[in-house]
Design a protein around this nucleic acid. Structure first.
Lengths: 153, 153
DNA sequence: TTCCTTGCAAAGGATTTGCACACCC
DNA sequence: GGGTGTGCAAATCCTTTGCAAGGAA
């Protein structure tokens, strides 16, 4: 886990390495993306980025996140809520997600045994694992969770 | 695994039990659904159903599959291709999916060890598993697969 | 006859893209 | 200055719904 500043520096290096420009919009979006530890949707990123650059449009967030995803700086996930969510990609790191069905909070987990079993299952069918998606939807039993339940809708 | 006729009979029983009508359209859709062993999308179900009842509309397939899903006769999945796919639901049965990235063919798998580990992971976070989604995307190494690759697009 | 069903077409909701203008480098 | 980047609006893509006409029971 790196600090936000070095992540932003990485983003700038990525842009200049690709001959792309560092605009106010891209800075605002990247700052929002790296500052929040959460798995944000495009709309949430837009809302956060607008706190710094009010005129930013949805399409710019969309294109910036695509840029980062293609460039390997971000990873995109489609959870059960049906829209894309992004998280910073970390070199050589892999994890899956544990999602609270009550408050929507997303935790990460990693389990070597599961990974190994997946390889075995695929091999049994003459296949080689390329990627996978594994999400556990669970109910949080702790009281803190219930409090977070208070949603607008 | 039951034969198609008894599955269709189950569907008819379900309809009459709910006070719903058995229309030509519903018969055609259910027949298409149960006859194909695959995980079909709404469009694919529509195409198949139209072979029997050419005038069927997309909305009817949508509503029929919703009916079956709500009634517990079908299960809906959202795989990486982004649209809903359906499979017959079997009593008390659970499985996950192994998907070939080359031809898109979907196999089913089930692993008690993985299920158990999931419970452990959730418990470690004070959570109780409610459901999960686990898809393995793999490359088929057998030549038969490549042949199936010849897609229209 | 009664109400459930259907097909069409339009509404949603999220994601993508075209285009003229704005702005980094 | 030149070519990239942006914002808006419109186009997609799939899903969902409203409504008048059709059809099972």
């Amino acid at each position: 886990m790196e600090d936000v500043d070095s992540q932003l520096a990485q983003f700038r290096d990525f842009l200049s390495g690709e001959g792309l420009k560092l605009t106010r919009q891209r800075q605002a979006i990247a700052a929002a993306f790296y500052s929040s530890g959460a798995h944000l949707s495009l709309q949430e990123l837009l809302d956060l980025a607008r706190e710094r650059e009010p005129s930013i449009g949805y399409a710019t967030v969309y294109r910036t996140m695509r840029l980062m995803t293609d460039g390997g700086l971000a990873t995109e996930h489609q959870f059960a809520d049906g829209h894309a969510r992004f998280e910073p990609a970390e070199e050589g790191e892999h994890h899956d997600h544990l999602i609270c069905v009550t408050c929507g909070h997303i935790l990460e987990f990693e389990d070597d045994k599961i990974e190994a079993i997946q390889d075995t299952i695929a091999a049994a069918h003459g296949m080689k694992v390329q990627s996978h998606r594994h999400e556990i939807y669970a109910e949080c039993l702790r009281p803190e969770c219930e409090r977070r339940t208070a949603k607008p809708n």
